[in-house]
Amino acid sequence: MMVVKAGGRALESNMEGILRSISRRAGRGLVFVHGGGDIVTRFEEALGVEPRFVVSPQGIRSRLTTKEEMEVFNMVMSGKLNKEIVASLHRLGVGAVGLSGVDGGLMRAQRKKRIVIVDERGRRRAIEGGYTGSIKEVNTKLIETLTGMGYIVVVAPVALGYEGELLNVDADQAASAIASALKADQLVILTDVEGVLVDGELVKEIRVGEVDKLGGKIGVGMNRKVLMCARSVEAGVSRAVIASGLVDDPLENVEKGAGTIITR
């Protein structure tokens, strides 16, 4: 089983190449998790919903998801993007089922009712959280049933909260949680750079025990991907790779050794 995640930027630049690459590996059991935060932001602007972003003490900028924003987030992620990807995979000749984490309780998450941010004055504050969550459970049986029937499972990063609410979960977290729960052979995170870069140089391999040392040397967004990869490897995934989604055949590129491999 392989879990592949592509962020919104990689998808917007190379949706055809990424999906063609995935479609060629359909028979092996494949889950595809998509991001798309920038596309959600554009729709929010078009609908007059003002996106609000917050910065965590670790320096990660993320969306403060209000109830109104969650509605747009769900419409774009679970609806527009997810179904366009499923339609494209069918056009490429492979069966795909598009689900959000809500369907069949695919991803259950704990809502973060209070969050810590760094405000515009640089001070740490606890504020009311939005509709974001930490994934606690994955319905592996549903995924295995669908992949066993030959479908690629396309997952939108929307989870089901324990009070029945819809929650925004970031796609890196979703891919890591799904790969971990499935004990997948491989987790591949496709992004818009060629892997983890330190001083402009590609790092070919990172051992889980080395992750903490990297913290200050790579950007916060990439650090988050590395942490999610390390978490999945610790949970039993054989290996995780962060690689470019911008090349013609991103998964073939990974098979040839491209990107950064995170291993035990």
Binding site: G36, R63, I117, A126, G130, S134
Partner: peptide, 11 residues
């Protein structure tokens, strides 16, 4: 006393 509070991880 501050409660244990999560950081925000949304997409």
């Amino acid at each position: 006393e501050a409660e244990e509070i999560a950081e925000d991880w949304g997409e």
